[in-house]
Amino acid sequence: MSGHGIVARFDRVTACFGTHRALDGVSFAVPAGGVTALLGRNGAGKTTAIRALLGLLPPTRGRVTVLGHDALTLPPAERGRIGYVGEGHPLPRWMKVADVVAYQAAAFPTFDRALCLRWLERFAVPPKRRVAQLSRGMRAQVALSVALAPRPEFVVMDDPALGLDTVARREFLEVMIDLIQEEGRTLLLTSHVLTDVERVADRVVLLDRGVVRIDAPLDDVRHLVRRYDLVFAGAPPEEGPALPGLVRARRRHGQWQVTVRGDEAAVRAAAQAIGADVASVEPLSLEDLFVDYTIGEEVAS
């Protein structure tokens, strides 16, 4: 791992595809030994960020470093320390499961074939079946097994639960929890299933239209970002209350409901300063946070 406990770092990364800017000056770090969730709506830039991290996509500007090296010039030996499960679990469809295992084992010097076969047995995946004949859940399990078999220090998963049913997703999550509990592993994942993310993530990075909106420990975000119902003594302002750290404001029953990032006492004081009282405070689930940050409507900071 890199000397400062950071496994990967994005430094003002911009990635353009023609006129479309998929990432716009993105900066964040993935600390060692935890789970970082990279969240965002479809098209927010998550997969682009993952691909830049693995050196599969050169950024237009900025720099990505992983394991202390520039991602574009990552030495092959270092690349072997990274496990990767791609979006949609891409595997050669004509290969049998055993062939996939052999193919990956030939490439990764640290590939633990016995471990891989134990995972496959746990998932009840027949080794002689072709990938094309596997269900989506089984394909995900094969992709995960071959990605973990080299015992990588840093695991990157791009929407690993994509297309999985509830039971398959739960099994996948259990494997991830086992993985996390192994000392020293670092996990970066993207996912749309925020209930799963809440169970496993230590840190959250939220991308919205190529820009980082949140980059903080999950507990801090949940503690600091809350929903407040404001009651104004007089007529409520038409354009929404101007509060520091305002994420979203909505008219509800003639008053304003605001999502604000900041210390509760400070928010109450700021509300009083504009002539409002806080009627209620509501903590937010990760899903509520995600929606409020990305909805992009009404008034937002």
Partner: peptide, 12 residues
């Protein structure tokens, strides 16, 4: 060309 499964391996 962008196949992560093909390209992400300990080889140039």
């Amino acid at each position: 060309r962008d196949d992560g499964f093909l390209l992400h391996r300990p080889a140039s």
